[in-house]
C-alpha cells in the first residue's frame, strides 16, 4: 500500500467525518440529543434542590444515587437513544433525504465512507455525551458543597468519573456501530433499535448465557459502583474489565466489517425506501 494512497484515504475519511460531524452537531438534528442529555442534568439539578438536609452530609448517598441513575437511566436510555439518533441517520438519513448518491459518486472506497461516517458520528456523540456525563457527575456532588468538590477531585472521585466516561465512550462505540449497521440494513432502523432496547433492559433478568449477547452486560462490568437491579435480577459475576472493554471493541469492529460489506453492495434505489 503506497503512502500516497494512505494519505488520500485519510484525507477522504476526514472529509466525510467532518461533513458528518457538521450534519450531526451543527444542525437541527442535535435538538433531540440535547433534550435527551438535558434529562440527567435536570435530574441532578432537582436532586440538588430536593436532597434532605440530613443526607447532604453523607457523600455515599451521592455516589450511590449517581451509580443508580447512570446504570438505569443514563446508559440504558439517554446514551442508547442519543446513539440511535446520531448513528442510524448516518446512512439512513441520507437515503431518506435522497442525497446519499453524492457520497457514492466520489472516488471513495466504500470502507473509507463507512469509516468516515462512523468517526464523524462518534465524535459528535462524544462531544455531547461525555461533557454531559461529567457535568451530571459533578452536579450530583454539588449539594455537599466544598466536601462534594473535594470528593470529585479526589483520587477515588476522579477514578469513578474516568470509569463512567470510559463506559459512555465505549457505549458510543458499540451502540454506534450497531445503529450504523441498522441504518444500512433496515429501511426503518428504529424497529431493530427498539427491539434491542427491550433486550438491553431485560438483560439483568436473563440467564448468564443470554446476558453475554447484550452490550449493557459488559458495560455494567466496567461501572465503578454496581447498581442495585432489584430483587428479580439474576446476579452473575461481572466480566473482567479488560475483557469487557476488549469484547466491546471486538464487537464494534465486527459490526463495522458487516457495515462495510453492506456498503460495498449498496445500490441507489431511493424509490424502494
Amino acid at each position: 500500500m503506497s503512502s500516497a494512497r494512505w494519505l488520500l484515504w485519510r484525507r477522504q475519511a476526514w472529509a466525510v467525518a467532518r461533513h458528518e460531524l457538521v450534519r450531526s452537531v451543527f444542525s437541527g438534528r442535535i435538538v433531540p440529543v440535547l433534550l435527551l442529555v438535558a434529562m440527567p442534568l435536570s435530574l441532578a439539578g432537582l436532586r440538588a434542590l430536593f436532597l434532605p438536609a440530613g443526607q447532604r452530609l453523607d457523600l455515599g448517598h451521592s455516589t450511590a444515587d449517581f451509580a443508580q441513575m447512570f446504570a438505569l437511566f443514563h446508559l440504558r436510555f439517554v446514551v442508547f437513544f442519543a446513539c440511535a439518533v446520531i448513528f442510524a441517520k448516518a446512512f439512513r438519513g441520507e437515503i431518506l433525504e435522497r442525497s446519499l448518491h453524492y457520497s457514492l459518486l466520489a472516488p471513495l472506497d466504500r470502507a473509507v465512507l463507512v469509516a468516515g461516517k462512523y468517526v464523524g458520528s462518534l465524535i459528535a456523540a462524544w462531544l455531547v455525551l461525555l461533557p454531559a456525563t461529567a457535568i451530571t457527575f459533578v452536579l450530583f456532588h454539588l449539594p455537599h458543597g466544598a466536601a462534594g468538590f473535594r470528593q470529585v477531585l479526589s483520587a477515588t472521585g476522579a477514578s469513578h468519573l474516568a470509569a463512567y466516561l470510559a463506559v459512555v465512550a465505549l457505549a458510543c462505540c458499540a451502540y454506534g456501530a450497531l445503529f450504523l449497521l441498522a441504518g444500512l440494513y433496515f429501511s426503518n432502523p428504529m424497529v431493530p433499535a427498539l427491539l434491542f432496547l427491550g433486550w438491553e433492559v431485560a438483560t439483568p433478568f436473563l440467564p448468564p448465557a443470554l446476558k453475554a449477547l447484550s452490550f449493557v452486560h459488559y458495560l455494567s462490568s466496567l461501572l465503578p459502583v454496581p447498581p442495585s437491579l432489584g430483587p428479580l435480577a439474576l446476579l452473575t459475576r461481572p466480566v473482567d474489565p479488560w475483557l469487557a472493554g476488549f469484547g466491546l471493541l471486538a464487537a464494534t469492529a465486527a459490526l463495522l466489517v458487516l457495515a462495510v460489506r453492506k456498503a460495498r453492495r449498496l445500490e441507489v434505489t431511493y424509490a424502494a425506501d
Binding site: M39, L46, R47, D65, F77, N188, A193, L194, L197
Partner: peptide, 25 residues
Amino acid sequence: PAALGALFALLFVLSAFGSAVNGIT
C-alpha cells in the same frame, strides 16, 4: 423511522425520567 423512534423514546425515556425524578426527589 425517526418518528417511530421519537414516539417510543418519548414514552420510554419520559417514563424512565419520571421514575428517576420520583426516586431522586
